[in-house]
């Protein structure tokens, strides 16, 4: 059993890493047809950070991730990754450049086995690199190793989430976008997934995390942004945000 699977006490680091700005969104407007989903979002993610986006349903969290990973493109505004403008770059190219996305709802290939799912995650990589990355993923998720030949669709919800994250890691991303990894999981599994996210971050992957579970997200993140109807209404260090009255009322369930 790897130490990663055991629940790690989740205490947020007080000081955020001060790496280079890896990912930068500047006044990004994204539309679905006529619907103005993102109304001028500006976000920075520094190398080594865990940054979380919190907000209610329809605030634009998922849209922001999709805009970063190239599944959607902004109509105006700029998205830069390592200084390069990626606003118009398609998703499959960005995977090669180092942006990994574990999309909302897990979307594992349910008819493929666990191993085939992970191999698909390494689509952009060579066979030799894949072997090493597989070990890395099994190390993080020993559960997946036990299930290698099982169909993705027959996994439990938590295992599917592990598979979705593991698959995204197979492309060896420098920044990993996670969309609601705790969705529909039991509290213990949520703890487990979140401690694995911290572990992934500790091994050097920058993380942009979208969560409805604001308390958990702010516990492991360095910094956070609150989105409301397509705009950033609040940002700051995770500890500041946990103390913020508005956040406590709206998202942490305090009266």
């Amino acid at each position: 059993m790897s130490e990663a699977a055991a629940p790690v006490t989740t205490v947020a680091p007080m000081v955020a890493p001060h790496g280079e700005v890896l990912l930068k969104l500047t006044d990004v407007h994204t539309y679905y047809g006529h619907i103005h989903a993102l109304q001028g979002i500006s976000i920075d993610v520094r190398a080594g950070e865990i940054v979380t986006l919190i907000g209610a349903n329809g605030a634009g969290k998922t849209t922001t991730l999709k805009t970063v990973s190239g599944l959607l493109h902004p109509r105006t505004g700029r998205v830069t990754f390592e200084g390069r403008d990626i606003s118009k770059t398609p998703a499959h190219t960005l995977v090669r450049q180092g942006i990994g996305h574990a999309p909302e709802g897990r979307r594992v290939f349910s008819r493929l086995t666990v191993l085939e799912n992970l191999q698909m995650g390494a689509f952009t990589r060579s066979q030799a690199e894949m072997k090493e990355d597989l070990e890395h993923v099994y190390d993080l998720f020993p559960r997946l190793k036990e299930r290698v030949s099982q169909g993705g669709g027959s996994l439990s919800g938590g295992e599917q989430q592990m598979l979705a994250i593991g698959r995204a890691l197979m492309a060896r991303p420098r920044v990993l976008l996670l969309d609601e990894p705790s969705l529909g999981l039991s509290p213990i599994l949520v703890q487990q997934i979140f401690s694995i996210i911290q572990e992934i971050n500790a091994r050097g992957t920058t993380i942009l995390l979208v969560e409805q579970n604001a308390l958990q997200a702010l516990t492991i993140a360095h910094r956070g942004y609150v989105l409301q109807t397509g705009s950033v209404v609040l940002s700051g260090s995770a500890s500041e945000m946990r103390e913020n009255e508005m956040v406590r009322k709206a998202y942490l369930g305090e009266i």
Binding site: L71, H92, R96, F109, F123, R167
Partner: peptide, 10 residues
């Protein structure tokens, strides 16, 4: 299997 997942796998 899943076009969106395929795209996010490169």
């Amino acid at each position: 299997e899943d076009e969106l997942a395929a795209a996010s796998n490169g």
